[in-house]
Computed example of a mutant assay.
Amino acid sequence: MSKPYIILELDRPRRLRYGMNALVTIEELTGKPISKLDLNAVSIKDLRAIIYAGLVHEDKELTPEKVGELIDEHGDMENVAKKLGEAMTAAFGKGKGSGPEAVNRE
């Protein structure tokens, strides 16, 4: 069974998912281990990298810069941050029971 995902509305509905490859990408882009990331005190650069890592699985053409543009043009930072939190919670197994509308599986 694959990792759960959260729908993030940007230019289109996109599936925000944090599996093993996404977590490695976050560590590579931020230079920090996942265990040291504090999502309540993250830089904008790291936030963009984290969102990119969660989206690139379904669109290999994405870049961190393109994700920044999508958020600027179609996103609401408060909603993006909320969805990021939901996706991270789902990835680490604490999202079960939050309802089928919040966590999806492929």
Results as ranks from 00 to 15, higher is better:
3 K>A: 12
7 I>D: 10
8 L>H: 02
9 E>S: 13
10 L>D: 03
11 D>P: 06
12 R>E: 15
12 R>G: 02
12 R>S: 14
14 R>P: 01
14 R>S: 04
18 Y>F: 15
20 M>L: 09
24 V>A: 11
28 E>D: 14
32 K>Y: 04
32 K>S: 07
34 I>C: 07
35 S>L: 08
37 L>D: 00
38 D>N: 14
41 A>Q: 14
42 V>Q: 08
44 I>G: 02
44 I>N: 09
46 D>Y: 02
48 R>T: 15
49 A>Y: 06
53 A>H: 00
53 A>M: 01
54 G>I: 03
58 E>A: 14
59 D>M: 03
64 P>K: 11
64 P>V: 10
64 P>G: 04
66 K>E: 11
66 K>H: 08
67 V>Q: 00
67 V>T: 06
68 G>I: 03
71 I>T: 04
72 D>M: 08
73 E>Q: 13
74 H>S: 11
77 M>Y: 14
79 N>K: 14
79 N>H: 06
81 A>F: 11
81 A>S: 12
83 K>Y: 00
83 K>Q: 13
85 G>S: 10
86 E>L: 14
87 A>C: 06
88 M>K: 01
88 M>E: 02
90 A>W: 05
91 A>E: 03
91 A>C: 02
91 A>S: 14
92 F>L: 08
94 K>D: 09
94 K>L: 12
96 K>T: 09
101 E>S: 12
104 N>G: 00
105 R>Q: 11
106 E>K: 03
106 E>Q: 08
